[in-house]
Write a protein that binds this DNA or RNA. Structure first.
Lengths: 219, 219
DNA sequence: TCATTATTTGACAAATTGTCAATATAAAAT
DNA sequence: ATTTTATATTGACAATTTGTCAAATAATGA
């Protein structure tokens, strides 16, 4: 047996064992998600999560250092899901209108299909995030989203489509906050989906559009 | 002794006793605020709050049914403070520009003077708010703020200053979310106060302003 | 099969949260 | 001033929740 294969044998587990591990984690994460959304963070005990996942209580702590870590993992998973959907949608958008409406629609559809998940994820991000002052932490997904809007704005400015007196970082964050409105739970008072999304899209576009640009902001 | 005076004696406490009660509560609330902001919700124990407030551990539960109730009280207090400042400021505003800029400035000044408080309050509102489906709960302060913006928008529409194809409830919420950007902690990357506030104010005003209206939205 | 390693488990320990009988303080009555 | 009554506080204690680890179980490779 070569040295290489020895090393392989050490850090690559058997397929069955590996599958078991990832399955356990997924089951725990799915259970955590359901309970955190249903009952909220406080009324969800690691015990409950383990039971619903069908694993022993101790197993919980094999995959999450503590309850907070589990919650963070839940938030990250939810955000990654939405992020993936948004990226797919943005890939086929050509105008700013399509982009804004697209992101809103994706977020809204996700919220309908997964009530409470995005809301909890948004709130959690803020409440959990500690200062970490000093350490160069990588950008959170929320900051990444803001950064992406900033890039969109910068490009729009270069094309003369967006007011060039805007600071892209600031307005990028502002646009992001507007899009977060859709995850505030489904409000009946806000009318149907089309009405709701059209309103928000108009507000953002009118806020961005430079005077010269035509009615529709073409990419 | 008349029946009335008996009743008075029962439900009106002595002044000294009453003062003691409210003082205890205030001390607890101030301690809770400091610790919730400094260490976050999880790393703050009722014990710690009591100790910092200089009262016994049991006293905590005389004023708050549990830890969550204490946190809610903290959030409400912080929101009420900001609300009071905002109302004072709005009272002297005549144009929409003054209103938007004013609310942003008040929020930002508060955030500078009380780092982390508004951020925690915002996040807390969302994470703590349970569904309470069925019960007719009064509007939360956040919903009240959104409602106020909605009224501003409705008036602006009637005066022909704001796009009349907007649903005030929806856009009111959107404006609120934009204003919440200032409580996301002080970002150095966002430049100085004037730069930051001017950017956000412009974005909101341009999003609102009807085509006919002059550059500055006069009330 | 059997030795070795990886994974799971639930009883247990630690920490946190919440309760209450005892105590202290203030107000009212005599 | 003293007693009585009502109110407020306290910290030891109980209940719950969170986290650990030695023992048990399952998978791997020879």
């Amino acid at each position: 047996m070569s040295t290489q294969s020895k090393i392989d044998a050490i850090d690559s587990r058997g397929a069955r064992q590996d599958q078991r591990r990832t399955e356990s984690r997924q089951r725990l994460l799915a259970a955590a998600r359901q309970l955190f959304v249903e009952r909220g963070y406080h009324d969800t005990r690691p015990q409950d999560i383990s039971r619903l996942a069908g694993v022993g209580h101790g197993t919980f702590y094999l995959y999450f250092s503590d309850k907070q870590a589990c919650f963070r993992a839940f938030v990250e998973q939810a955000q990654a899901e939405v992020d993936s959907l948004i990226m797919k949608r943005l890939a086929v958008c050509r105008t700013h209108e399509e982009r804004v409406y697209g992101v809103l629609e994706v977020s809204m559809d996700f919220t309908k299909a997964n009530p409470g998940v995005l809301k909890a994820a948004w709130a959690g991000h803020q409440l959990m995030s500690s200062d970490d002052s000093g350490s160069a932490t990588s950008l959170s997904i929320v900051e990444q989203w803001a950064e992406r809007w900033a890039e969109v704005i910068t490009r729009g400015q270069k094309a003369g489509l967006i007011w060039d007196d805007y600071d892209p970082k600031i307005i990028g964050y502002a646009v992001l906050m507007v899009t977060s409105v859709v995850s505030t739970g489904t409000r009946e008072a806000w009318g149907d989906k089309e009405h709701f999304l059209t309103n928000l899209t108009r507000f953002v576009l009118r806020g961005l559009a430079a005077p010269g640009a035509g009615g529709a902001l073409s990419s």
